[in-house]
Design a binder for these strands. Structure first.
Length: 569
DNA sequence: GCCGTTTTCGGCCCGACTGTTTTCAGTCG
């Protein structure tokens, strides 16, 4: 039983209690607990096993006991009993957009609708018409909601969301009424997946902005259209929300619209204790506006320092901000080089020189060319005989380049027994050795862990690339004993990679945070296969910032000399 | 069910938009 299973049980409990019209604050307590559990970097199982249950926001004595019961027995009696009181299909009905707990209950009580199938049949037979509070428009919305639910639109990657957001940005920027705009929501918090795109606009003429927004060519449906707030769905099925406020409310609206929800609630509670009220228009004392133009002035009013959007998840950052003890997050300018890129020597699309030039223009002072090793034939892995020529090419290039160094590297394969694809006598020639698993993903947890541990223990392996093997939409992360890996990585001074490729993002934010906590240093690399891909480093940086990493936690913030010293330790 | 620089009881964030019963509950973020 992992954190996500526990969170799901709590979420289900919240949903059932909602339909049963239980105490709304109790319901929120379960939802909040579920959300906070999903954001934890350590396994609950670990806590229970070691009997060191820490203070987790939103989890008191009762929920702590429920978590222990779930971990220890694999089930929760309270949940099992609760489930028996309602038909299971009601939860599916509650998942339909526009259908909430009240409607679910109404349909169940008046029409005995117990499942999605029941609901579809009832609509087909026109049974919903005439039920208290339901008319044509509501039925139409339910039908649309069911269709949407069935298409099963998952969350998209941050990169996909960014592409949609930029399209809207381009269109809105052309309007003279738009004074300023910003992305908000989970897009601004840089979550690795995003459900919808939130855009904030500053304007004195909200109606002009709204009417232009809903007419942007890629809009398919208009979900809501108001004076200051509208929602649309694009042809690619992405929901985009747009909110317009005036300049004096920009900070307040940005804060509100960025979230997270739990973060906002905590902040507003804090404000109440100080005799203040926060909404999207500003901070108010009685009904007097006291702050709102910028986020900074609002945080200051609340007696805390600025909290970066990536940290706003209510996992302890508010408490640290009140004490001015927040870590200084790593930023783009801190990165000095990329330690995982490919060239045309293996499966890349550009020559070493082209990659180096592009990296230099990108502002880096070094780059490691880490082509695949001999066994990986599908990616034209390099045979030992070719390596000498590649090394010579790099040496010649380095003589010509000024203020820049190309490092001679490899992404060496870890075979199914944990053996490294080049002999030690070959490995010792490289400046940078990145090791990774590319085959045999379906092995057991013990086998996969053993392979990674063996790689760490090789004295020439400096970095483990994409350590959990996750590939968005293709492959789930493989199951490894991450705590064991961290222990060995720390003891052997092996660095773990945050692979910035948008469909990898591996390590993810939770793993990276856990790595930092256990004293393992990280690397942010792109795995670029052509010059244009060096810029995906922004997504790796997003992971790092969400993991609360500082400059000193990431080794490719070091100068080239310091870096080589660090990896050879 | 959680939580405490008004505390161990009595509070619990705040507002926009929709559809409908035309004043407001339900849903959403």
């Amino acid at each position: 039983m992992g954190n996500f299973e526990v969170a799901k049980i709590f979420r289900d409990i919240a949903k059932i209690l909602e339909i049963k019209e239980d105490n709304p604050f109790r319901i929120r307590a379960y939802e909040r607990a579920a959300q906070n559990i999903e954001g934890l970097s350590e396994d609950l199982e670990e806590y229970v096993r070691k009997d060191t249950f820490p203070k987790i926001p939103g989890i008191g004595k009762d929920l702590e006991n429920k978590i222990k019961e779930i971990i220890n027995t694999g089930r929760l009696k309270f949940y099992e009993d609760l489930k028996k009181t309602l038909p299971q299909g009601l939860l599916d009905i509650g998942n339909i957009p526009s259908v909430g707990p009240k409607t679910t209950k109404l349909l169940y009580e008046k029409l005995k609708i117990k499942s999605l199938t029941d609901l579809e049949k009832a609509i087909a037979k026109n049974k919903l018409q005439g039920i208290f509070g339901i008319k044509e428009k509501t039925i139409e919305n339910i039908q649309k909601g069911i269709a949407l639910l069935k298409r099963g639109k998952e969350r998209m990657t941050l990169a996909q969301a960014m592409a949609v957001a930029e399209e809207f940005q381009d269109a809105l920027k052309k309007l003279s009424e738009v004074k300023k705009m910003a992305f908000a929501g989970s897009l601004r918090r840089q979550k690795e997946t995003v459900r919808d795109v939130d855009i904030l606009v500053i304007s004195d003429k909200p109606s002009k902005v709204m009417s232009a927004f809903i007419r942007i060519p890629s809009v398919k449906d208009i979900l809501a259209e108001g004076a200051t707030k509208s929602s649309v769905r694009t042809k690619s099925d992405v929901q985009v929300d747009c909110r317009v406020v005036e300049s004096k409310s920009f900070g307040a609206a940005l804060l509100y619209f960025t979230g997270s929800k739990n973060f906002n609630i905590k902040l507003r509670q804090l404000a109440i204790r100080k005799g203040l009220k926060i909404n999207e228009y500003g901070v108010f004392r009685k009904n007097t506006f006291v702050a709102g133009r910028t986020e900074e002035e609002i945080f200051k009013k609340l007696g805390m320092v600025y909290i970066e959007p990536e940290m706003r998840e209510d996992t302890g950052e508010i408490e640290l901000a009140l004490k001015n003890e927040l870590p200084k997050l790593i930023a783009t300018k801190d990165l000095k080089g990329d330690l995982h890129v490919h060239s045309s020597w293996s499966d890349g699309n550009n020559s070493i020189e082209e990659m180096a030039q592009a990296a230099k223009e990108f502002g880096y002072s070094y780059i490691a060319i880490t082509d695949h090793s001999q066994s990986l034939r599908v990616a034209s892995g390099l045979k030992v005989a070719d390596l000498k020529k590649k090394k010579q090419e790099i040496e010649k290039l380095n003589k010509r380049l000024k203020n820049f160094r190309v490092l001679y590297g490899t992404e060496v394969d870890i075979d199914s027994d944990g053996k490294i694809d080049y002999k030690d006598s070959v490995l010792k020639e490289f400046d940078i050795v990145v090791a990774a698993i590319h085959t045999g993903f379906k092995q057991t947890k013990a086998q996969l862990t053993r392979r990674l541990v063996a790689a760490c223990k090789n004295k020439y392996v400096q970095i483990l690339a994409h350590p959990t093997g996750r590939l968005w939409g293709v492959r789930d992360p493989y199951d490894i004993d991450f705590e064991e890996l961290l222990k060995v990585a720390r003891d052997t001074n092996t660095h773990l990679e945050i692979n910035a490729f948008p469909d990898r993002l591996d390590l993810n934010d939770l793993h990276a945070r856990r790595a930092r906590e256990s004293g393992v240093k990280l690397v942010i690399s792109t795995d670029a296969h052509e010059t244009s891909q060096l810029s995906v480093v922004q997504f790796g940086l997003a992971v790092a910032r969400r993991a609360w990493l500082r400059k000193e936690d990431v080794i490719n913030t070091l100068s080239c000399e310091a870096l080589l010293k660090e990896v050879r330790k």
